[in-house]
Amino acid sequence: MNLKRFGVPAVVALTAALALSSCASNEGGAAAPEESTSTLSGNLVGAGASSQDTAQQSWIAGFQTANPDVTIDYDPSGSGAGRDTFLEGASAFAGSDRAFKDEEVAAGGFASCAPDSNIVELPLYISPIAVIFNVEGVDTLNLDAATIAGIFSGAITNWNDPAIAATNPDATLPDLAITPVHRSDDSGTTENFTEYLGAVAPDVWSYEADGVWPIEGGEAAQGTSGLVDAVTNGTGTIGYADASRAGDLGTVAVQVGDDFVEFSPEAAAAIVDASPLAEGRSEGDIAIEIDRTSEEAGVYPIVLVSYLIGCEQYEDAANAELVKSYFSYIASPEGQDVAAADAGSAPISDSLREKVDAAIALIK
């Protein structure tokens, strides 16, 4: 199942995003029912992963419909910026395409949280990362991990390279330079993508997984929308982005074992359920260690697990109540189905939901 039909508009500027997220959801199709039993009120501020933006707008609309006296602002500023904003106490929750690292959690200093509070990290947005390209006349390619790594490392520079032709005998590959495009910002999508390359093609990709692109040079673009625009408007371009944003671009089926697997919500969910939880985390910190090297049938290993991050204990009780209610809605079957319909994400499994609900119960 390909997600190209789930293309979405580009992310707008910060001021417009905040205005639309808080106003459009109240005034548009998500108008609150005439009578509401909700007693929640207030403003909730979040920031972070741009990959979640479409899902966040749907979640905000649904939550504000049920709770018309609540407004939620989510700034899709990128995972790194979102984590920093949460650390500084300028937001009550963050969206991030990776969990906080062990050393970051140990350092603490989460300004919105009560002293000595643990954080909750909930894997509530699961989506494949698509390798997208723009080559006239070519809609899809089968590529192994070493070839993908060679392209993005600069070792493979032309679309008719023998490594690409070997797994695509029926494709008409042009004598055309490859232009790899990477994120210019600190991005959880980049960290997930580089983690995959290093795990599956270590002989070709010698760089550590990082949210900051590790190679000098090449074409860089800000945010998910910027990268997709750069690939779309270029010639011979290739990049990586949340699969919901693939649109009409060419996409790659990646080799898993002896098969080539196209991205899909089902394949993304399968790799998450086949992967272990990180060790040594607190009860509410559900960080997942994705098994990028899995050869199980039907799994897609270039997957983005994007987290909703909050505090177990908040300095502000009003924030605690709003975050707990909002996270509960996002984790519910209704919230997960809304994101799947609008953003092409993979709904979490029932077994994962049990762990998430237990973590949300800790928020106070």
Rank of each mutant, 00 (worst) to 15 (best):
T251S: 14
D69H: 14
I126L: 07
S96G: 02
I271Q: 02
V135S: 10
E219K: 05
Y300N: 09
E354W: 05
G48Y: 01
I330E: 06
A61E: 00
A10M: 10
T194V: 07
T147R: 03
I286K: 02
G137V: 02
S325P: 00
S332M: 03
S294C: 06
N134F: 00
I126K: 00
A268T: 04
E191P: 03
V252I: 14
T65R: 14
L124P: 06
S345R: 12
A155Q: 14
L362W: 00
G28Q: 12
E34I: 15
A220V: 00
S294P: 03
W159E: 00
V231D: 00
T172F: 07
D170P: 07
E315I: 13
L87W: 04
A99Y: 10
Y329V: 08
E295L: 11
G7H: 11
L3Q: 12
D210H: 02
G150V: 13
N158H: 14
L308R: 04
S58N: 08
V204C: 02
K101H: 08
E103T: 14
V356S: 00
S117H: 02
S225W: 01
A297E: 15
S79N: 01
E27T: 15
D84G: 10
P9M: 10
A171G: 03
D337G: 13
A359H: 00
V105P: 07
W205F: 15
P128T: 07
W159F: 07
F327L: 01
M1K: 15
P128L: 05
A16T: 15
D161M: 09
D175Y: 04
A359M: 04
